[in-house]
Design a protein around this nucleic acid. Structure first.
Length: 233
DNA sequence: GCGACAG
DNA sequence: ATCTTGTCGC
C-alpha cells in the first residue's frame, strides 16, 4: 500500500506536542458507514538489547477466521526518546515503513498503546490512523491517563475510562474472565463502543487481541533472526 | 516539591 | 521496551 507521510519526524519535544494539538483536532470518533471489516492489522515494535536498533512489524488477519493473511517488517533505530505522551514519534517511522510493504491496505488497525486516552487525545493509535486514513484502535496493557472503576470479573465486562472532568476517552475491558483488563480507546474513525466490540472479538482466548499477539511473535522472530546472524564469526 | 507516566 | 527462574495449571 502507498504511504504518504504528511509531516516530518525530526522534531523536538515542544514541536511534537504542538503537532499533536494540531492533529488531534482532526480526529473522528464516528464509525464509517458502511463499516466493512475484512482485514485487520496489528502492529508491534521490539528493541534490540545489544544494538540500538528496533524492528517494527505489521500482521494482517482475516476478520472472520483471525488467520494471518499477510505480514511485513522494517528495521530502524530510535529517532526519538521514550517520553510518555510522545510515544508515536518514537515508533511510527518504522511502523509506517512496514505498512508501505503491505500489498493490501487493512480496514482496521489495532495498536499496542492508547488512542485518545492520551493527555492531548492523540496517542499512537490516533496518530497512525490519521496518517493512513484508516480506522484505528488503541489497546494498551496499562493506563496512561484516566480514572475508572474495576470492571466486573466476567469476560466482556467494561467500565468507562474518564479523563479530566468526566470526559469519556475509552473503556477498561475485561477480555477474559478473572484476568487483568486492557485499556481500549478509539484511535481514529471509530467509536468507543465499536472499538471495544472489535477488541473483544479479537480476544476469544487470550487477554490480548490476536492482532497484538501475532505482531509480537513476528517481531520477536525478527529479533532472534538477526541475533543468530550476529553470533556467526 | 511529590507522584504518575502507553512501550 | 529489556533484564530474568521457577512455578502453578490446563
Amino acid at each position: 500500500m502507498q504511504i504518504v507521510t504528511r509531516h516530518a519526524w525530526n522534531l523536538n519535544e515542544q514541536e511534537a506536542v504542538s503537532l499533536q494539538l494540531e492533529l488531534a483536532a482532526k480526529i473522528s470518533l464516528r464509525d464509517p458507514e458502511p463499516f466493512d471489516v475484512r482485514r485487520i492489522a496489528g502492529i508491534d515494535v521490539a528493541y534490540d538489547k545489544d544494538d540500538d536498533r528496533l524492528v517494527a512489524a505489521v500482521v494482517v488477519l482475516d476478520a472472520d477466521t483471525l488467520d494471518v493473511v499477510e505480514t511485513a517488517a522494517a528495521w530502524g533505530s530510535p529517532s526519538f526518546p521514550y517520553v510518555p505522551g510522545l510515544f508515536s514519534f518514537r515508533e511510527l517511522p518504522p511502523v509506517l515503513e512496514a505498512f508501505g510493504r503491505l500489498k493490501t491496505a487493512p480496514d482496521l488497525i489495532v495498536c499496542d498503546g492508547q488512542g485518545i486516552a492520551h493527555p492531548r487525545r492523540f496517542g499512537l493509535a490516533s496518530h497512525l490512523g490519521l496518517l493512513l486514513g484508516i480506522p484505528s484502535i488503541g489497546c494498551g496493557k496499562t493506563r496512561l491517563i484516566g480514572e475508572y472503576d474495576e470492571p466486573a470479573a466476567e469476560r466482556g465486562s467494561a467500565s468507562p475510562l474518564l479523563a479530566d472532568g468526566g470526559e469519556l476517552v475509552g473503556h477498561v475491558l475485561r477480555t477474559q474472565t478473572g484476568v487483568k483488563p486492557v485499556f481500549v480507546s478509539p484511535g481514529h474513525l471509530i467509536s468507543p463502543d465499536t472499538a471495544c466490540h472489535w477488541v473483544l472479538k479479537l480476544a476469544p482466548r487470550y487477554r490480548l487481541p490476536e492482532t497484538t499477539r501475532q505482531a509480537d511473535q513476528l517481531v520477536r522472530r525478527e529479533l532472534s533472526r538477526i541475533t543468530q546472524d550476529r553470533r556467526l564469526p
